[in-house]
Design a protein around this nucleic acid. Structure first.
Lengths: 220, 220
DNA sequence: TCACCTATTTTGATTAGTCAAAATAAATCT
DNA sequence: AGATTTATTTTGACTAATCAAAATAGGTGA
């Protein structure tokens, strides 16, 4: 079986390949895993000999179907564990990421299935990130973000990408959890600023960069 | 922090030191961890330089207070996880040991505390093994076993030591889980045989060795 | 085209954990 | 006591994962 290091590499390649055409540059991978670039190169070569990834010399790495399968398994475990920590253990959704990061490599298929059933087969975790199915199917619906959506339209937050505690705490404090209803009231590209209003509460401003982490759908 | 390998060594030393005066021979430790004796020696020396154990050359290893503290933490995690798997996820008590073996190294103090509260601060796991407190206090009450207890007295099973799936399944199939009421009807030292009777069910015979794994208390 | 900057790959070392097999100490058995 | 068996320790080698630093390949810009 894959070591947890291998699982982390595969998961990270999957996450980073969402942008781009699936080809992840070494530098991006290395910095996401906080290793030096040389380490990533070495590891990617090992993944390639194991048939889990293709190493395109000097251009980047891409998962093979086998590698993708493993990565989706890790992602499923991660997101189900996060859901469990919030729904059952009542932990704060802003702090469960790191916990799940550890547990995802230690939980068996048998335990995971029980957990999944206990939670009622959820389709998304507390951040709104979609949970891959047991068969490795991942919802890949594309959403607008607060940085790209239409102005003045009624919206609903569906997902908060970016797992850092600080950002999530900011989102939490301003009521921007998945499910919240909002409307963008203005957007100034030059100033890089987005202003918005929730159904309840005072107006709120945030940078374009921050706004890009909040995915939204046309809202009820 | 201690690696999971280190945690496993410390936990195993603690478990094996229950017999003996706390001094665990290398051979016993090595075979419990399924490594060759030389590996255990090397590791024990490392534990000694880290102040977690005393290496008594050619005689064995003994935990220091620091090492014992760590080991009790691992044991607490292991047993709380087993309890969770059985009580909440409704898994079979005969198969949770291996699962807990993995998870015990990946669960944080924060998650463990929530789990503990969710379970109602249990004092023993599904096998009847006592759960160390957060402060590292471990119930060390000494019980009789079906191999040593009085004959004909009403008893109650309090604990099934021995974590192997086969043995536990045998115990389960014959209704010898913690809580069961039994009476020893006979014991033949020469034949190495113990016969017993549960309040409900047909008589049952087992070897002295097997009987030694079932701890009992004078029964209600 | 040539020089330079940047990303990537190589090379040589290091650490944790392990095994195989030789060396040694202790215990046991005449 | 002397010889033999058994447990333990040592030694040398290996794998996975990592870093530091040197080497290299690709552009980019003049």
């Amino acid at each position: 079986m894959a070591t947890s290091t291998v699982e982390n590499y595969l998961k990270q390649i999957l996450l980073l390949s969402a942008d781009s055409d699936g080809l992840v540059p070494m530098g991006a991978l290395a910095s996401a895993l906080t290793v030096v670039p040389g380490t990533a190169t070495t590891m990617v070569k090992a993944l390639a000999t194991d048939g889990l990834a293709e190493h395109h010399l000097r251009h980047g790495v891409r998962l093979t179907p086998a590698g993708r399968r493993v990565a989706l398994g890790v992602l499923r475990r991660h997101r189900l564990i996060e859901t469990f920590l919030v729904d059952v253990l009542k932990m704060d959704w802003t702090e469960v990421h790191a916990e799940a990061e550890l547990l995802e490599h230690a939980i068996s298929e048998a335990v995971l299935d029980r957990l999944d059933a206990l939670l009622g087969h959820p389709v998304a975790d507390p951040h709104g990130d979609p949970i891959p199915t047991r068969l490795g199917k991942l919802d890949s619906q594309v959403y607008a973000t607060l940085a790209t959506c239409g102005v003045a339209q009624p919206l609903r937050v569906v997902r908060v990408t970016e797992q850092s505690g600080e950002f999530l705490q900011f989102a939490e404090q301003n009521g921007l959890r998945p499910g919240t209803r909002v409307r963008v009231t203005g957007r100034n590209l030059v100033a890089g600023l987005v202003t918005l209003k929730k159904s309840s509460g005072r107006p709120l401003a945030l940078s374009l960069a921050a706004a890009g982490n909040i995915l939204v759908a046309p809202g009820r």
